[in-house]
């Protein structure tokens, strides 16, 4: 398995773990109160820490195990995967943004909008990284 593919797996799993915890633990009963907004901000801190720690630890571990692979920049096939993955992620991002704009007419709370935006970004990221993993596994 290529170095960059391993990093993508770490990123994919960290995203699922961190935001899985976020969306399962969020106190939805206070979502339409100011405390709901504070909860979003407060819970994003550990989410960010989890992702940064997992990605840093994985990159360091893999680089120590295989320094040659770590020093090699992604080649043209991997850059192609990156472009295609980013392209695919654009669609859920746009749909999510439109969903959020439409939701404004239904007078959702600030925390509900924030969660909708976070969900949009998470889905787009999962599709971006997940599609690249699919391309890595397929080989082209």
């Amino acid at each position: 398995m290529a170095f960059n593919e391993k990093l993508h797996w770490a990123s994919f799993l960290a995203l699922i773990a961190a935001f899985g915890w976020y969306f399962l633990s969020y106190p939805y009963q206070i979502i339409d109160t100011p405390a709901g907004v504070a909860a979003v901000a407060g819970m994003l801190v550990p989410v960010t820490i989890i992702i940064v720690v997992v990605m840093t630890a994985t990159a360091v571990f893999l680089a120590i195990r295989s320094p040659k692979d770590a020093n090699m920049k992604g080649d043209e096939r991997e850059r192609n995967f990156h472009i295609r993955g980013t392209h695919l992620a654009y669609y859920p991002l746009v749909i999510g943004m439109w969903g959020n704009m439409i939701a404004m007419f239904y007078r959702l709370s600030v925390a509900e909008h924030l969660n909708l935006l976070i969900a949009t970004i998470v889905v787009a990221e999962l599709i971006r990284v997940g599609s690249q993993l699919y391309y890595y596994r397929r080989g082209y």
């Binding site: 290529a2 080649d75 043209e76 096939r77 890595y136």
Partner: peptide, 21 residues
Amino acid sequence: GVTRQTIAAIEQGKYSPSLEV
């Protein structure tokens, strides 16, 4: 200047390399 996996994909006819490669 490419990964082992890219050479394997080219060999198997799965990936069309750039003119440079």
